Simulated scan of single mutants.
Amino acid sequence: MRPSAVLESALYAEDLAAAEAFYSGVMGLDVLAKVPGRHVFFRVGAGILLIFDPRATETAHSGARLPVPPHGARGPGHLCFAATRAEIDDWRARLTAAGVAIEAEFDWPNGARSLYFRDPAGNSLELAEPRLWA
């Protein structure tokens, strides 16, 4: 047996309002759920992007409604979104117009294109052609 897909991915940000503004406004993702001071979740295609405030999730809370184990990370994480080469061109223009700095853009040895930038928490984000891993 093996998993068939990644269902959810998590990044961490202490300023959830800035994260929500970025991922909903700049990235165009729909907010699926949020709990102020703890998390904001977004739908990304068939998957879910979880943004947690690590201060709220790295310790266990007695009396929690659901028994989710403590988790959290410090420092920048990484997430890559799938995009076609033409979409990457459109994203570059959209991100630049929103004042988001492009850190790198290049073609991998297999010819797939990647574009790197950061969210307000400093997480490294990438847009890449799916053939990067084909």
Rank of each mutant, 00 (worst) to 15 (best):
D15K: 06
E14M: 04
V68Q: 02
T84G: 05
S114L: 08
D119W: 09
L49P: 10
G122C: 09
V35D: 03
A33H: 13
G63N: 11
G25L: 04
G63P: 00
V26A: 10
P120K: 12
L132Q: 03
S9L: 15
L125Q: 01
A73H: 15
R92S: 03
A97K: 12
D90E: 14
A18T: 05
P70H: 02
L132C: 05
L16I: 12
P3I: 12
W91P: 03
R92M: 03
G45T: 02
P69Y: 09
A13I: 01
A64Q: 08
H39K: 10
R113S: 08
A101Y: 00
S62W: 03
A93F: 14
L29A: 05
R38H: 12
S114H: 11
A97E: 13
H39F: 14
R85A: 15
R43C: 09
Y12W: 06
E20A: 02
T96I: 10
A19F: 06
A64M: 11
S114T: 15
C80D: 01
E129A: 07
A82P: 13
D89I: 10
F41V: 03
P130M: 06
R65K: 06
W108N: 08
G99S: 09
E126M: 00
F81A: 04
V6F: 06
A21G: 02
